[in-house]
Design a protein around this nucleic acid. Structure first.
Lengths: 204, 204
DNA sequence: ACGTAACCATACCGGTCGGTATACTTGCAG
DNA sequence: CTGCAAGTATACCGACCGGTATGGTTACGT
């Protein structure tokens, strides 16, 4: 299959990728035809198939690009606003998410892609799972830097809250879901940190 | 628009509804054609259009039916296993979810539908939001029966965990996400109950 | 008995889909 | 100078899409 990578990509290919990622996210995978992508990217179907092989190949490349974009976005946000480990650094993920969602009002693009791809043996499915694992591992590693006990478990809890907030904000149409999730996460992190400060088995 | 209701539905219409709901959930809305639904329901396109007016009308009826099914399922589960208010009753929602997901391995059908319908002015969008509101309100009312302080806020937290668990189990491919969510919910409910037992402002 | 609602069978419509073919232009590297 | 990769433009392909038309059968309520 030889998935198309970002490195050494033709200018036109990059333009196609950007246009397609936006259209796929905004309208869904099956709802967008290859011809429309070609038109809006000011190119032709021929070039798209020359560069990406098939619509499925393009979808795969788009999801990979979106994954890379999100990772770079969160990483940059945390590096800039909360470079040192601590509770604010952990909360930086949700802060970044809030900023990200200002321009991504249709929910999680990977969950949406999963909705259309699950069950098919589509080559992009591992990318979706990998993205979820990345964000989960981000929480885990941020907690680990705080020397929190059971960082793996606590990180997975925060990731669940993270995902749930996105769903409630979009499909659930609950505008303040992110605020609720933030308060909950803050409480959980505080509890975890406190548990780390107390010596083992010294519960009063 | 006059949405098609379940009441007084033709036997064939009910068969169409069941087949379509299953196909739409299993493969996605746009991925399933009307002709395929007709074939698998042992009927004809003509009858489908006579009963539901359009594919969009059928989609709307399917989501309404799925919503009703889920509500009936959870309600019956709790009534049977945990008829009295208490922590186990609250946890009954996730227990029911686990049982539900044994036959629904493609994630939340409403989130999946949202993925394909958001942005279009589709008539079924309110049904999706209503379903999310119903499950959220279920948590709130179960907590209210426990005389928990801030039941509304605590219920919304539980609902966020609920939705996050589904996403992590499916798109996130994390099989134990439900167990993590269950432990987290249990802790949250226990804390909330404890807070209700303590008199106001008497924090030691 | 008659009308009507429900249903089946089948053919058809215009449009769009993913994907291919052909032919031409441009720019750069050997 | 030449060859090749990249791109444009356009026409085309079979398949499938949502939706409609026609015509016929069965069963039931009045």
């Amino acid at each position: 299959m030889s998935t198309v990578t970002h490195a050494r990509m033709t200018p036109t290919a990059l333009r196609i990728l950007g246009t397609a990622e936006q259209l796929f996210y905004q309208h869904g995978l099956r709802a967008v035809g290859v011809e429309r992508i070609a038109d809006e990217a000011d190119t032709t179907k021929k070039t798209i198939y020359d560069r990406f092989g098939s619509k499925d190949g393009l979808i795969t490349a788009c999801l990979q690009r979106r994954s890379d974009r999100w990772h770079a976005f969160v990483t940059a946000y945390i590096d800039e606003h909360h470079p040192a480990p601590g509770l604010p650094q952990v909360m930086g993920v949700l802060d970044a998410l809030e900023q990200w969602m200002a321009d991504n009002t249709r929910g999680c693009g990977f969950v949406n892609a999963y909705a259309e791809l699950a069950g098919t043996g589509h080559e992009a499915l591992p990318i979706i799972a990998a993205e979820k694992a990345w964000t989960r591992d981000l929480y885990v590693s941020l907690l680990s830097a705080l020397a929190v006990p059971d960082a793996d478990l606590r990180g997975r809890e925060l990731a669940i809250v993270h995902e749930g907030a996105v769903v409630q904000m979009t499909a659930g149409e609950q505008a303040d879901a992110l605020a609720v999730a933030r308060a909950l996460q803050q409480r959980l992190v505080a509890e975890a940190v406190e548990a780390g400060l107390r010596p083992v088995g010294s519960h009063p």
